[in-house]
């Protein structure tokens, strides 16, 4: 039985995520990565848990936000480790889950 650590983007971060960097405006992918995604992923690795990222409840995402946050995580830990220890939930945008996974698989493309 897997243990889960959860990030709910709309609840824990914002319901209106921004673009790539803080220079692009507030609530950027970089801020999300540094404030939530990276520490929670490290915690998940330490406690041998799965990081569940709930993407629902926001107005939508910019691809720059996704590439900066999930792409950076993949660059730091490698696609295999990230994909093994992360689970994406997106019931409101069915295609988003696939898009994030492909960003993790090819972070340099993003």
């Amino acid at each position: 039985m897997n243990k889960y650590i959860e990030i709910n983007v709309s609840h824990d971060f914002t319901d209106a995520p921004g673009a790539r960097n803080p220079q692009d405006g507030p609530d950027s992918g970089e801020v999300f990565y540094n404030r939530l995604l990276l520490p929670k992923f490290e915690e998940a690795l330490k406690t041998k848990s799965i990081l569940l990222v709930d993407m629902d409840g926001t107005f939508g995402y910019a691809t720059s936000f996704i590439s900066e946050s999930f792409g950076s995580l993949s660059m730091k830990f490698g696609p295999e480790l990230v994909l093994k220890n992360i689970k994406i939930k997106s019931d409101e945008d069915d295609g988003l889950k696939t898009y994030i996974k492909s960003t993790i698989k090819n972070p340099e493309k993003a």
Partner: peptide
Amino acid sequence: LKKKITAYWESVTGPKGIKKNDSY
């Protein structure tokens, strides 16, 4: 079509795209 709509989304909201910045 899924690829095309994703490419359009990337063009609008990618690194060269729109910003959440009132001075943009």
